[in-house]
């Protein structure tokens, strides 16, 4: 499946889901002629239409590409949708790497209320640095702790923003 086709199908799915939710919007006694669900329904239909157009474009261009390819496809042709200008590299492995960074972010969300801002942000810096390819050494941990203290100083002490103190602190 090409990326264009994937984009088209996602748009159709998004439009369909959004339309289904728009149908559930309750009509109000104060409603005007359009109503609260009016624009959402129009947007959903437009999204589905554009998704169909994008999918059709992808299928047509795929057929056009496959026509002259009567000769056997070489390994280099395997990924017909590959684009040398792609920012996202490494195929599925690249996606997994991005997912790993996202998981570090989610991990921070899960622990910050419990352990508090300084340990959580230090852990985030250390984890993201190691995940980014830095060698495991005491320096990474030292920089993580220094970064956490720096951000604590900036946000809490200088800007007066209350960042989570954490539940663990109440145990001491």
């Amino acid at each position: 499946m090409t990326r264009e086709l994937m984009g088209g199908l996602l748009a159709i799915l998004l439009g369909g889901g959004y339309f289904a939710m728009a149908l559930q919007i309750r009509a109000s006694a104060l409603a005007d002629t359009v109503g609260p669900a009016g624009l959402p329904k129009v947007l959903a239909l437009l999204m589905i239409f554009l998704g169909l157009v994008l999918s059709a474009q992808a299928l047509l261009s795929g057929r056009r590409k496959s026509r002259p390819a009567a000769e056997p496809a070489s390994a280099a042709d395997a990924d017909a949708d590959a684009d040398p200008g792609d920012e996202i590299q490494g195929g599925l492995a690249g996606l997994a790497r991005a997912g790993g960074l996202l998981a570090i972010g989610i991990g921070y969300l899960l622990i910050v209320r419990t352990v508090g801002y300084v340990p959580a942000i230090a852990a985030l810096i250390v984890a993201a640095t190691l995940y980014g390819g830095a060698a495991l050494s005491w320096r990474v941990f030292a920089i993580g702790i220094a970064g956490a203290v720096l951000y604590y100083t900036l946000f809490v002490l200088m800007l007066g923003i209350p960042l989570p103190a954490g539940h663990l602190i109440s145990l001491f």
């Binding site: 921070y108 985030l124 640095t129 995940y131 980014g132 390819g133 970064g147 960042l163």
Partner: peptide, 18 residues
Amino acid sequence: RAYLNAFIFALIFSGVFS
């Protein structure tokens, strides 16, 4: 790049929470 990105990530989390 690993250190820079980690600090930017932490900045986003701290800044948005604030």
